[in-house]
Design a binder for these strands. Sequence first.
DNA 1: CTGAAAGCGCTAACAT
DNA 2: ATGTTAGCGCTTTCAG
Lengths: 344, 344
Amino acid sequence: MAVTIYDIAREAKVGIGTVSRVLNNSPKVTDGTREKVLSVAKKLNYQPHAFAQALARKRSNTLSAIIPFFTNYFFIEVLQGAQETLVSLGYDLIIHGVNSREQMEEYLSKSLKKGRVDGTLIFSLELSDSVAKEFLEKNIPLVLVDTQHPKFTSISVDNFEGVRIATEHLINLGHKKIGMITANLKSVPAKERLIGFKQVMQKNNLSINDRFILSSSQTKNDGFSREAGYESMKQMLQQNSELPTAIFVSSDIQAIGVLAALREHNISVPHDIALVSFDDIELSKYFGLTTMRQPMYKMGELAVHKAIQLIENPGTVLSSETFTPSLIVRGTCGQNPAYSFPSN
Amino acid sequence: MAVTIYDIAREAKVGIGTVSRVLNNSPKVTDGTREKVLSVAKKLNYQPHAFAQALARKRSNTLSAIIPFFTNYFFIEVLQGAQETLVSLGYDLIIHGVNSREQMEEYLSKSLKKGRVDGTLIFSLELSDSVAKEFLEKNIPLVLVDTQHPKFTSISVDNFEGVRIATEHLINLGHKKIGMITANLKSVPAKERLIGFKQVMQKNNLSINDRFILSSSQTKNDGFSREAGYESMKQMLQQNSELPTAIFVSSDIQAIGVLAALREHNISVPHDIALVSFDDIELSKYFGLTTMRQPMYKMGELAVHKAIQLIENPGTVLSSETFTPSLIVRGTCGQNPAYSFPSN
DNA sequence: CTGAAAGCGCTAACAT
DNA sequence: ATGTTAGCGCTTTCAG
């Protein structure tokens, strides 16, 4: 039914080999025949059959992205970056949302093994040894986004630097009693952000009051949730008669919970307590959060470029790129007059 | 390099036809050979080559989803529904984000024509006649989500019923002077929601004050934006000395802008003005919006089922399914004590 | 430079 | 019931 290279070969009075050649821009064709073939192809509205090409070329021109579907905001933007650059490069993207590491492994072992995709992007999910081994053995191009592994190229965010910028912003504003609300410390970024925080405090000769440091024991989303932030703030409120003048919260979504808790106690932000957080998710601007922005779109873009490099240039050495988040000043630290907080 | 049915045929001392049969659960195989083949397949860790299958079967077992990437919230959930049911049915999903109708048409004409996907899902984008014709001609299964066309099966939301429920909620609360803030009326849902609103008011013998009905002329996102809502509310505030006691806002994202405008004028919600809106996007709960929830996950699920039905059962008549949104009572109408609004 | 032919891995029709 | 063969549509030798 569909028009194939045979059709255009017949019509153009050439062999299918020649047709294939001009379609693939092979230099070894006369301009005359090339034009003829091209014009017939256009006339017939020819479209190559992707699967047949994939089969013959042993290349599918598609990447798969594995993302934890529950987390939303961050991924949307990274995916958008990935998707748009993929399109511009003539690739397709198969997206696979997983809810757990097991599901990821199941998917990987089923769908990725044979030719379906040329490479894959894994987002925020820790790689188990068995999966890592499989990728290594089968030599499937893999790039990790927002997660890392010594054997694979990855794109991530410099949590330490981000925390430094955020905390020093607070310090520069004159704050000395600074607290921190962290997510579940089993999460790597959560841990890094806490460690980073302590380092910055020390470097600036500020004392760390352990009562001002709360971490979440919640497991849902590793404690990166509004509820976890709310609980942590409540707890800090209960445990202390005196409060810090500023708090660094390890994610925006938690910061939103913190704001709610604070509001319930009639503690005004930024007047009584200043807040900085991390991520700059879509929500953040609606709440006027001063936060550390991760260059999500760019990360997606770069991830794709790396993956394609890996595919088209198998010898590529693995590289681990790190982005530095940037400070977005809005209302929660009180020095951007454009934001009258809360800004809903 | 990879293990093929030839490998397992040789190892199991049978023909490739037999191997293919057992792999495809053909009944015409002896239990003995079946077992033998299966065990060899397992031993060799065989995985079928998706593209070769697709080529031979003329079926790819993948669907593509075309979504306007800019709109975020709504799609995430619908996609999640779509994705999960697709996986459970052994299909893959290729996601394609487009920023304009032109981009959509470009993508369609390039990638969809030949065998790449068995069917496609189009989200919220209006179908041009040429595209519609193409789908019809090529007979490619298509289901529309959150948009409609007489010739294709679609899943959408009953805006009229939703508006009725929302508005009568206000009426039941005792409101008589009710205003509405709409999006750009060039958008179909925006128009439907306005028409629905007027109908309900009439049916309840409530007079409609045109000064209380504001529509946005913004084109970005068809006026479904925070900014548009903010502007509309500002305008209503300027134009009137007296205000309605309740407002129906045609989307949550606009309602958030309305809240901001109201707050600037020290008008308290729900005390001075009650608000109902539409969508129940992720943001809404953080703002305590009372709103009409669209069953997004379910819509994705159903869309997939319809599409697959179309694929596997070409004779299927087109069906247009409509979901009724449900009222989510939070804080903006003031009768849910669980929500002390604003709840950020 | 170009035509013919082999083969990518699999399914399905055709024999047996 | 099972082996054999012919494609699916394309790329890529291999001759010429």
